[in-house]
Design a protein around this nucleic acid. Structure first.
Lengths: 107, 107
DNA sequence: TAAATACGCAACTTTTTGGTTGCTTAACTA
DNA sequence: TAGTTAAGCAACCAAAAAGTTGCGTATTTA
């Protein structure tokens, strides 16, 4: 397909995918494909496709158990976006914000 | 089209568009459509379309002068992405990074 | 004023994307 | 073991996106 950062940006560019990702982040336990699709209007196959896209972006990790596939959110790849933003953040102002960005860049 | 944040994410999800935006950010002066298209493989019309998308996301501001349309980058909308990331950043670790994020959230 | 330049608009093509349905297979459960 | 449940795969469809070409129109410049 395309490079990592593009996969990542495309994964979160779709509102439904952002919603699914968010649901997984705030879920107290991993959710199966069926459990996810119960929460959304679209079909189970539609969810499967979105999960695949999220998985390829590294934002979802799957834990297969028997016939079920439990999906976990992984927020770490979002750090790449944070890094991407860092460069541009120097242009939007130079107050405390930049201290925050500076600290981020050092961790 | 769609909501603001989706427009923004979609605008930067395309690699060509990210490149155009980057070129405008680092440019020492505003660039006309033709000047931009000279730097890229795609046609002038292709550039015009990308600029329109960036403009609708607020990432480009146009200053028309005579027959030319000078494009300026505007990084401010990217703060919205930063804000979006903030919520998820609490999950990826809790060291200095969070101090940075915390400071960002207060400005 | 004639030629050249900068650009918009519209139509069109191709590819990608978001979504569907139908069918199969594997794994539980009664 | 028979029925049900979870999900993958493949084919398909419609709409959106990325890009093109052709043409018209304003604005410069020679």
């Amino acid at each position: 397909m395309q490079d990592k950062i593009t996969k990542l940006f495309k994964a979160i560019a779709d509102p439904t995918r952002r919603d699914i990702f968010h649901a997984l982040v705030i879920a107290t336990s991993a959710l199966s494909i069926t459990q996810i699709s119960n929460q959304f209007e679209i079909s189970r196959q539609g969810v499967t496709k979105h999960i695949k896209t999220l998985q390829e972006a590294g934002l979802v990790v799957i834990d297969a158990q028997g016939r079920e596939r439990f999906c976990n959110a992984n927020t770490k790849p979002l750090q790449e976006i944070n890094k991407w933003l860092q460069f541009y953040s120097q242009f939007w102002d130079n107050s405390l914000q930049n201290l925050g960005n500076y600290l981020n860049s050092k961790t």
